[in-house]
Structures are given as structure tokens and as C-alpha cells.
Design a protein around this nucleic acid. Structure first.
Lengths: 160, 160
DNA sequence: AGCCGATGTTTGAAGCTTAAAGTAAAGCCG
DNA sequence: CGGCTTTACTTTAAGCTTCAAACATCGGCT
């Protein structure tokens, strides 16, 4: 969370951007914490597991671990353990990739898929409720602006 | 989710909100990952520690653990360990609260403050660079919209 | 064929994070 | 005062997360 560092200088360049960043962060954190809490309380599931299942739900033929980790923007090492637990709980199954002996393809089990559908519906409702104060045009506007912010950030983040 | 049989409503209610949420999330994650990476690489510091220091930098008289955990929106238990490590590394010191024997007041050490100032300046520059494509009016607009989103979310998140 | 840099995955260490349970002190109220 | 609720903090267990290092395989190149 973050930091508004200091010195009460007047128009430091970058000030407005930092302010925006802090707001972005608290906004995300607030929503995310609530979703995490409800997923746990109502379905006994953690957010990261939900996220894996969400990625798989959109890919009926399964995905490799790398593909999932790219979509979720988490490290590969992270995914190893996550998937291990999802396999153990019967929500996901893994099989070796037919075309690449290094890779594994994972997909939702029957149970996994039907559990996910129930959770996803609730999830959608929670989001809608939390953003209920924003009329549709604002939603669209915000979505657009965030898209620009994202691609601006990505430019810098990728070149290293 | 949805798209069952029947009356094609304008669009699934809640859809646009979910789309917005996902974009908010990837936007935040992208920026946050980059900041985390740079803090580690250039200063050997983790983001949570930076955040604690940022909170303390703005409070010259120190803060109790609870106050910090409220600002950072993390659990109290989390902060216990975080502060422990910051004390160990000489960035923060703790003393008992003069008015409440349960509480501890923590504040930046000299080292902590001067280290933080250096990092904060770099941090501000990174943020500004990542958001460089957004002209000032867009920044303001986005900040405003996020404020609305936040308070909308907070309404739902707090009542439970 | 054989090398070699890139890719897919796992492992390990360190640290972050939460929820839940526990201890201690404060504050209220009859 | 004595009892009750709240608040401050710590502890524990489980899980998440990253980075870095280790492997195995792949694909291109010579």
C-alpha cells in the first residue's frame, strides 16, 4: 500500500501521479479484500484458487502451467503449489502435454467446473454490488482510462 | 456465467462491472509488480517494508501498530512480524506508549528516515514514468472516478 | 549429429498474509 | 468496586508469493 512520501513541496512533478497510484491501490485492495473474505466464508476457497479456476473455465481444452501463470501474472513456482493443492482437492486434473514432454496440461474436473460456476455467479453479483454507485457511462469511462493507464505502465514495466 | 436461454437483456447485468474490476486488477498488479521488483533490486527492500516506512514518514511522532495496520489495510498479526524485522534491520524503533500500556509506538530511526527519503524519491519517479502517457486532465479524471468507485465499494464492504 | 540458447517446470529459502485463538490492558456501567 | 465489552498486540498454522537456482526438454543452427 503505499507511500506518499513526504515533503509537502508544492507542485512536485509526479505528485498527481502518485496520488492516482495510491487511490488505485486502495480501491483495488478494498474490493479484493472483500472478495477474498467472501470467497473464503461462503465457499471455503481462497482467491488464488478461484483465479486459477477462472482461467481454466475459459479454456475448455486446458492450459499449461505457463499459460495460467502468464494470465494470472504470478510466478511459475507459485503455480506449482497452487495446482498441487487444487489437484488434491479434486478440482483440477493434470496430464502431460501430448506435444511437449516438459509441459503439463491442467483443466477443471467436473466438480471443479460446477463448483466454479456457482462461485462465479456470486462473484459477479458482489462486484456489481460494490460498483453499484457508478452509472454505466462512468463504468465505461473508467474502464477506458484504466486501459490507457495499463498500457502506459506496461511500456515502462516491460523494457528493462 | 449467465447467457442462459431467453430474453436477451441489453447485456448481462454486472458484466461491465466485472470487466472493469478485471482491468482495475491487472492495472494495479502491473504497476505494483514493477515497483516491488525495483525496490528489491535497487534498494534491497520489500514493498511491505517500504509501506510501513512510508506511513511512519508522515507521522514524525510515531504511530501505534494498530494505526499503521489500519492505514496499510493489513492485519495486526501481519504487522507484528513486519515491524520486528524493521527493528532488527535498524530502520524502526519501538517504545511503549506513555498513555496505554497495551500499545507500542513505532517510528523511523535516523537511518530509516534517510533511507526512506531516497527510496521515496525514486518511487515517485517510477510512478510518474509509468503513467507518463496520461495527460494531466486524464490523471485528474481517473483519480476522481476511482474515488467514487472506492466509496461505492466501501459501502458494501463495511456493512456485513 | 551435436551444441546452445530459450522455454516449462520444480524446488528451496525467505518473507508476506490471513484467520483464529490467546493474553493483557483499558474503559464502561451498575 | 466487580463484571462486561472493547481494543492492542502476539502467536500459530496454513497458505500464498517471490526470487533464484536447478533440471529437463525443445528448437534452431552448424
Amino acid at each position: 500500500m503505499a507511500a506518499l512520501a513526504g515533503a509537502p513541496r508544492r507542485s512536485t512533478p509526479g505528485r498527481g501521479e502518485v496520488r492516482l497510484w495510491l487511490r488505485l491501490l486502495t480501491c483495488t485492495t478494498t474490493i479484493e479484500a472483500e472478495i477474498r473474505r467472501r470467497l473464503r466464508r461462503e465457499f471455503g476457497v481462497t482467491l488464488p484458487r478461484f483465479d486459477v479456476m477462472a482461467a481454466l473455465d475459459r479454456a475448455p481444452d486446458g492450459l499449461t502451467l505457463s499459460e495460467v501463470s502468464k494470465r494470472m501474472m504470478v510466478s511459475n513456482g507459485n503455480l506449482t503449489g497452487l495446482v498441487e493443492r487444487l489437484v488434491a482437492s479434486g478440482h483440477v486434473n493434470r496430464r502431460p502435454s501430448p506435444t511437449d514432454r516438459r509441459a503439463q496440461v491442467i483443466s477443471l474436473t467436473e466438480t471443479g467446473r460446477s463448483d466454479f460456476r456457482v462461485m462465479a455467479a456470486a462473484h459477479e453479483g458482489w462486484i456489481a454490488a460494490m460498483l453499484a454507485d457508478l452509472p454505466d457511462p462512468r463504468i465505461a469511462e473508467l474502464t477506458d482510462l484504466l486501459g490507457r493507464a495499463k498500457s502506459s505502465a506496461r511500456k515502462v514495466a516491460t523494457d528493462d
